[in-house]
Amino acid sequence: MVVIEVDGFEQWRSHSRELLKRKISPEKVTWCQPRSQQTLLVGDSDQQLLMQPVVCENPKIPRQFLSIAQQVACYRDDTRWSLLYSIAWRLVFEDKYLLNHKVDPQVSALFTMRKSIGRDKHKMEAFVRFRQINIFDESDHDGNVEYYLSWFEPQHYILPLVTPFFVKRFYNMHWSILTPDTCAHWDTKNLTYTQGVSKPSDTVDKLEELWKVYYANIFNPARLKLKAMQSEMPKKYWKNLPEAPLIAELSRSAGKRTHIMINEQETTQNSKISQSRYVQKSQKILRNNRDIDNI
């Protein structure tokens, strides 16, 4: 029995390599999160492992699997490492086309995990909200820097998977994304990571008011479909979305607003003749009046 500590993809990868070279079967390996007190014990186990004879000098793992493994390594569940190792073992010693075998329980679990990661990534790219704050930076020549700050709670450990997206998009901005697991900071040149934090206190960004105005007005009350909305924007994300507090009131008043549009309009309608006069008049004004530029 070997116990292996692992806290990231690269580590899992190098350990797995050594294990595969020695053809140590998955049942004999226990993977666990690193705990500082146990370092010694695991050091021993590492030694033991390395002393076993190498039977397969160059185990070949398909590249497709490695790129999937890199994502699945961010799955928030400790069983992921042993699943990844089992599949790697089977790819090397049993069937290199295993991944095409979609109905295999392990392969199907792998793809389910990848799908969940993919969705979490996509939602994070969508639902991160930055707040602008002004900070004083003495290294900058005019001192004041517009800084963009975000707090987000992803389901999985995906921050490193989504930072490339934000770097490309907001390359020329200073920003930080804080999460409970780890934080990323971009200063227009370098990306740095620091330890996770707990939720910081709220800062104020005036633009949020405009965003809420937009959100409230782009909604069509005659088409209320709360379920459809929630399946795409589940409640668990609401707490960090500035527009979410509006949802309750918009939904509640939707029925009444629609009713008014449908039923109470006839009373305010003009007769056809006066309406067409009104049309002609307003069209004429719009066509001729150059002042409209200044409205």
Binding site: Y215, F219, S251
Partner: peptide
């Protein structure tokens, strides 16, 4: 594309 929010009518924003 990316839908950054959803209005209560279920439509992507």
């Amino acid at each position: 594309g990316i839908c950054h929010s959803y209005a209560p009518d279920g439509r992507c924003i």
